[in-house]
Write a protein that binds this DNA or RNA. Structure first.
Length: 319
RNA sequence: GCCGCUUUAGCUCAGUUGGUAGAGCAAAGGACUGAAAAUCCUUGUGUCCCUGGUUCAAUUCCUGGAGGCGGCA
């Protein structure tokens, strides 16, 4: 009995679909998509880890992988949600887990690639046991802040969760809201839920971080906007508008969309100005991504220009 | 040509009743507990346009000059 249990465990371990898994991350516009298109589609499939590219109809502004590339190499978690629906890390992990199993069952190796560092982190380590967001409670907290004030909410947090209160800043509305929300839905403070600090599923991943020089990044981001315009970004925005899209749609929070919808709200201003803003916001975003990625462990940092080196690394890991 | 306003951080501008100065944006760095393309934090020495004068002390007051903006010719 005991023996067969051990054997069983061993069997599971050996067949662990999560054992071999590749992470290819880097900031927006660094050249992830181009690299993926160079890989052997019989050996690899891609799982998208980008919080905006999951949305249908947000193609050009999100710099989504083209149909050509998804035809060439299989992609998961692209176009899975309507832009008015809320995606989340939890959904990402759930869907990505399913995709991993599916890919491995096909005899291929999964590559998780995209720019959302938050998703990687929790895919690797898992989430805490804290309750998921409850829209009703979230709304309640939001109203509380509106009626009283943020500092009132912050002081409330001090009463119910001193650890979290000390950890987050008094102006961080986002996190103050979430911390209160957890308290109200579970009755327990957010800080009572520990964050895991080991990899899930006994993963032994290959983690590749792509980078590029600042000047080059800036040039690429600027060029990318021009290409988006050529591809018909304005038509895409117009279609979205026609379908009722607005700033409160989760998908419209994406850079390349929110700037247009903001401009529509505050009164028209020139496309060139919107373009400059989009490029500027993308630069700031890229910087935040680097900062987050730099905090990750076991990363093989490689310049995105060294394509051969990267492909070799992936192939030798996959043997 | 005359009159008025103006010149201070990379940009837009505060300010100092004379004791060499500070906001926003930009830039750089950082954080990240179920919304993360989100949210937030830290970092400000700069010939205070130039020149001469008054003064213990001038970016500040006065003289002259240069640039910008506006008005009148």
């Amino acid at each position: 009995m005991v023996k067969s249990n051990i054997q069983n465990q061993k069997k599971i371990k050996n067949n662990n679909p999560f054992k071999k898994i590749i992470f290819l991350f880097g900031p927006t516009s660094v050249g992830k998509t181009n690299l993926l298109s160079k890989l052997d589609s019989n050996k690899y499939s891609v799982i998208n880890a980008d919080s905006i590219q999951v949305y249908k109809g947000l193609d050009i502004g999100s710099a989504k992988v083209s149909k050509e590339i998804t035809d060439k190499i299989e992609h998961y978690l692209i176009d899975i949600l309507d832009p008015r629906e809320q995606f989340s890390v939890a959904k990402f992990i759930e869907e990505a887990d399913k995709a991993v199993v599916e890919i491995v069952n096909k005899g291929k190796i999964p590559i998780i690639s995209g720019g959302t560092a938050f998703y990687y982190k929790h895919f690797l380590y898992g989430l805490s046991q804290a309750p998921p967001s409850d829209p009703i409670v979230r709304k309640r907290v939001e109203n509380l802040i509106k009626e009283k004030s943020l500092s009132y909410a912050y002081n409330l947090l001090k009463e119910v969760d001193l650890t979290t209160y000390n950890r987050i800043n008094e102006n961080d509305k986002y996190r103050i809201s979430r911390a209160l929300e957890v308290k109200y839905t579970s009755g327990k403070p957010l800080s009572s839920f520990d964050l895991p600090n080991t990899y899930r599923h006994d993963m032994d991943p290959l983690v590749i971080g792509l980078y590029r020089d600042k000047d080059e990044m800036d040039k690429r981001l600027k060029l990318r906007f021009d290409i988006m315009m050529q591809q018909g970004l304005l038509d895409e925005i117009r279609d979205l508008k026609k379908n009722g899209a607005s700033l409160d749609w989760p998908g419209i929070q994406g850079i390349g969309y929110k700037e247009f919808f903001l401009a529509m709200r505050t009164g028209e201003f020139p496309i060139s100005k919107i373009g400059n803003l989009i490029v500027h916001n993308s630069k700031k975003y890229a910087k935040r991504q680097y900062t987050f990625f730099k905090s990750f462990e076991n990363v093989n940092w490689i310049c995105a220009k060294e394509e051969l080196k990267i492909v070799d690394l992936i192939d030798s890991y996959s043997k």
